[in-house]
Structures are given as structure tokens and as C-alpha cells.
Design a protein around this nucleic acid. Sequence first.
DNA 1: TCATTAGCAGTAAACGTTTACATTCTTACT
DNA 2: AGTAAGAATGTAAACGTTTACTGCTAATGA
Lengths: 351, 351
Amino acid sequence: MSPTIKDVAQVAGVSIATVSRVVNGRGVKPETERVVLDTIEKLGYHVNLVARSLKTSKTQTIGLLVPDFGPFFMEIAKVIEEVLNGFGYSLIVCSSDENVEREQQRVIMLKEKQVDGMILVPSSEQANHLAEIQAEGVPVVLLDRMVSDFRGDCVLVDNVNGSYLAVEHLINQGYERIGLINGRQEVTTGQERYRGFRRVFEDYNMAVSEDLILNGNFTTESGYALMRQFLESPNPPEAVFVANYYMTIGALLAINELGIKVPESLGLVGFDSMDLTRLANPPLTAVVQPMRELGEEVARLIYERVNGDDSGFPRLLRLKPELVVRESSKMVRGLRTQEGPGSVLKRAHGA
Amino acid sequence: MSPTIKDVAQVAGVSIATVSRVVNGRGVKPETERVVLDTIEKLGYHVNLVARSLKTSKTQTIGLLVPDFGPFFMEIAKVIEEVLNGFGYSLIVCSSDENVEREQQRVIMLKEKQVDGMILVPSSEQANHLAEIQAEGVPVVLLDRMVSDFRGDCVLVDNVNGSYLAVEHLINQGYERIGLINGRQEVTTGQERYRGFRRVFEDYNMAVSEDLILNGNFTTESGYALMRQFLESPNPPEAVFVANYYMTIGALLAINELGIKVPESLGLVGFDSMDLTRLANPPLTAVVQPMRELGEEVARLIYERVNGDDSGFPRLLRLKPELVVRESSKMVRGLRTQEGPGSVLKRAHGA
DNA sequence: TCATTAGCAGTAAACGTTTACATTCTTACT
DNA sequence: AGTAAGAATGTAAACGTTTACTGCTAATGA
């Protein structure tokens, strides 16, 4: 259908090698170049990158494998795309649905598509498929989550301290019964945030109420369900820390649905500051991760690796999160202490 | 590096044609198949899709070109990915930044990558590059926006009626001075929403206040700036309709920043119901577009086209948006009529 | 028993590039 | 003018597949 290099060569009266050289800007005589360029224009020729890739064994494509297409990872994907695009690469994004088998399938698919490198947010501690790909010469950089027995580059956030900051803030505000809506313990982000949570209590010499730890799975649905569980329990927490963005949304949904007043009846610290956390009712105190930086770093790193720069392998970048204090965690002193135990619902509705 | 079909053939002691047949599930004798399959397993062979694509001239890849990587289009991209993935296709997503030249570049790039088809959200009325691609045999489906002199498939939303519903609702609530934060007039979504706005006034036999129409460009920033302009003007509108999602966020930001009470001091109808509009303060009345359906339809359609089904070409799908009424547009009767003209700021702060 | 056919497997060409190597054309120097 | 060097171009192989064609084997029917 479309003209090929051969057609151009024929029409221009030169060999295909010459056309190729013109296309790739090698040394050809200016007048020959003119002729070829004109023919290319006339015929509407475009290089076939599939053919080029086969020959050069470079696709100028990076695979990005995320656990879901939610706003958090999409925000990062956007940055990655921008950076990589600047380097002349394009991106194939796919999702593992937080599911190891699917992750393995997708990795194979990306390998078959001959991506030059992969950025991967692992959805478990499984490492064999990653090592395998790596051994076959495809650079892999882990993003956001680590897997312990994988030796390779990682770009992460300091989650322990992120959640530490959040909970410490709650304690400093005077909250005592602090609940946790916990993330998936199968991945490092979940583990580290949990670790940070406990560490604060150690450092402040306080006991954690084990019954105020609810295990979620990072989804909005689980955030919603667990927040409801808290709110409807006979002896609910005074404040809750939610360990990721999607669950924060879910928790907020539950809170709004039940008409709970935040922070009057419940202190809240969530995760990540997109427009939503800023505009939420009330504006949410949150651990915010440096998403842009995360994307930039991981994009730069995979670019280096793909271009044969192995300096400092395996590189581990741990970026610092930040606590943004807004209104959802402002303790209203004196209010809570006057009441006996009871459902937040009662408190909220003045019962 | 990685083993090829040739290696497998050699080790298995068969010809490469046979290996190929095994891989593609053509008829080979069961025992031969076993041998080949075992060798594939042993060698860790994976088909090279680049080579296959070159031979078959099908890449099993669809290009998606959006004007930006914001949540609206990403939400749709997610659906498209899911559907297409089910058909065995992958997606290359890229952005035109609402810029025609960049759009043209990206289109060429996708063509060079030999995508089997493209889904495109045009960022102008320019059609020549689209027609060209189409003429070269690559199916193109337009999404969300139309371009008038392009003859091809489109999956759209009925924007005229979307914005009609919104403004009619405002009028029915009793608002009279209704402002519009308008979208880009270079694209059909912007044009149609504007048309819908005016049509309501015609139908209700009311005059539009031309000074209450502010022209934005679909970005959060412009939504913010224009809402501020409204709020700080001497004679601000009683209610505002914002013509897309990003500008709605911006408007909300401005409103919160200035501490304006909605709907007490200002009625508001925005666009699209993501988590944000639900959780915003106050919950937002919005024209919601059927994003999932949009994605599903466009994915299905491009799949059909790519697979040679040209039925009904050019197909035009116009999906219906829906008005979700929440609190931001509940007129508080009597309140406003007591005041003379003056900045909303004054009203808001009781001055 | 022999011809016919069906089922399998192999051979080789083709997809559109890039590039090592070979060849031809320029140019300039002796 | 002759030649050597260098520049410009051409030739052909290779990248890893798929697939039309060919040939072989074995089974079937008369």
C-alpha cells in the first residue's frame, strides 16, 4: 500500500542504500539528497519503523506495567511519557490488575513486542519473571514498590517515614485512639507504611490498639468498606490514617455518605494530593508523594539503562514524601474528651 | 541474544516452518508438536512480534491520540485499553497538547509505527492529515470531537443537549444572571456546548448577558482565572455553567480560595462526575458524559474497522450525557433578590 | 498390487529496513 | 596526464517471521 524505500529508490533513480542514507542523514551528495527528498515528498513516503526495528533490534519503545489505571499511576505515567517522548521513545502502558499471573503475561507480551526496556510496578514479591527478562538483556526498573530478592534498579518513596509523619502529626494534635486503614501487605508500599505506623507508637511509647487496624487492599471499595466499619463500630477511632490514595477516596465517600463531620467527629489523614484532596470537604491532610519527580527519575533511569549506561547498578532512589497539613486533622480540643465511648455516628449526630 | 525460531528448529530437529506452525497452532503431528513445544520451553523461546508484524503487516496495536493526559481522557483511555486488550491489541497513547502541529507529528509517528488503526481526539478543525492517513489504508475513528470536512467514523457526545440540560436546570432553579465559562471554540465540543447554552435562552425567551460569557481554553488554569474574574467583577453572575471538567476544577479552586459559599452565593454547574465532583465541597451538579460507554464504543468500532468490517461507514455515534443534580445548584430562594448588584465576594462575606 | 489422495514437513521467498563491503566517480597532486 | 585517495553510490546479506509450493510418506480403494 504505502510506498517503501524501494519505490523511492526506483523513482529517484538511486539505490535503496542511498535513500536509506538520506533518511538517516548520512553523507550523501547535496544534489542527490535533493532528488531523494523530493521523491519522498512526492510519494508521501514514511519509514517503516517495524522493519527498522527488526534490523536494528531497537524499537524505541518502553513498556510500563502498572497495577491499575487509576489516577495515581496515570499521573506518573503522564510524566514518564513526557520525559521519554523527549528522548524519542514511546510508551506502551498496560495493567497487571494487582495480579501476579497477569503481570507475568504482560511482561512476556512486552518482551515479545521487543520493548527496549521496562518500567514495572510489581504486584507481589515474586521475582523470577523479572530476573528472567533482565537476564535476557532487557533493562528493568522497578517503580514505587520493591521486591526483595530482585537485584536491580528501583525508584521508590520513603514510605516508612511518610506514614510516620502522618501518624506523628495525629498524635501531636492530641489524638489517641488512632486507626489505620492498611494497604496490601504483599507489596512493599503496604508493608512500609504499616511499619511507619507502628514505629511512631514505639517512639512515643504508646500502645497501638490492634483492633483499630483494618486491612484493606488499596482499592477505593476497600477504603469505603473499612471506613464504614470504623464508623459503625461501637468504639470507633478518634482519627484514622488511610494508607493510600484510592482508599482515601473510598474513606471520604463513606464519611460523606454518613454525614460525619471532619475533623469535628473524626480526624483524617490520607494519601496524595491531587486536585481531589485539595478540594475535598474538608480539605484533606495528606502524605503527598513526589509523583512528578518519581516519573522523571524513573524515565531518566530507564533511558540511561537502555542506552547502555550501567553506572551504579543496581541503583536505589528513595524520594521523600511530604506531609501537607490541611483541615481534616485539626483536632478540636476538649470536644471529644467529654464524651464516653460510642459510635462516631452518635457523636456526629449529637446523640 | 534470545533464541529464535531457527534455534528451536535446529535443536528440535525440524524445519523452521514446522516450528512456526506449532507456534501458530496449525496442523502438525501431535508427537512433532510435543518435541517442538518441549524445545521451546527448554530454550525459553518467545516469538518476536516485530518480525511477525513485518511479515504479516499487522502490529496488533492501536494508536490513541488525545489532547492531554488529564483525568478525563485517561479515564476513557483506561476503558479503551481494557476492551482492546480483550481483543489481543495493545495501545500506544500519546498527546497532542491541543496543538495541531504536534498532532500531525504524532499521527505520522503512529503511522510509522504501523499501528493497525488510530483513535483520535482532534484538536482543531484541520482534516488533511487525517484524510491522508485514512487514504493510506489506516482506519481512523474520531473520539469526542468531530471535524466537519472529514468523512469518517465518530464517537461523540451530544454536547448541545448536555449543556442545554445544565443551563435549563439553572433557569428552572430561578437563576437569572447565568454566566458561562466557555470552552475552546476551535473544536466541536466547545462549539456545541456554547450552542446549547444560547439555545436555552432562545427557547425560554430570555436574553443572554453577553458580558457573562467568558472564553476559556479547557484548562484548569483558565477555569481558575475566569472564575476569579467573575467573582471579582462588580456585577457577577448568580450562577455559572462551566463547559468542561478541567475548567470546573479550576473554578472550584478559585471558589474555595475566595471562600465563596456555593450554592448560597453562587450557583454552579460543572462537567463530568469523577470522584472529585462527588466529593467536592459542595457536591457538584454536573453534566456527566458516559465515559465508559464512549471508550467501549470507540474501541469496538476501531476493532471492527481494523478487521475489515466497513459496515455503515461513516458511522456517527452520539451518546447522551446526563445531568446529575447535586447541591451546588440548589437556589436558595429569596436570598439573592434582596441584595443590589455587587461582587459575590461582598455577598459571601456579608458585606 | 498400483494409482490416487491426504496429511505432514521442508524449501525458499518475501516483508522493508540497515550496513559491510565493493565499486565507481571526483578531485587534486606529482 | 596519470594516479592515489577519498567521497559517493551500489550490491547484497541479514534481521525473524509467515506461507505458497513442493515433495515425501502412508493410507485408501479398486
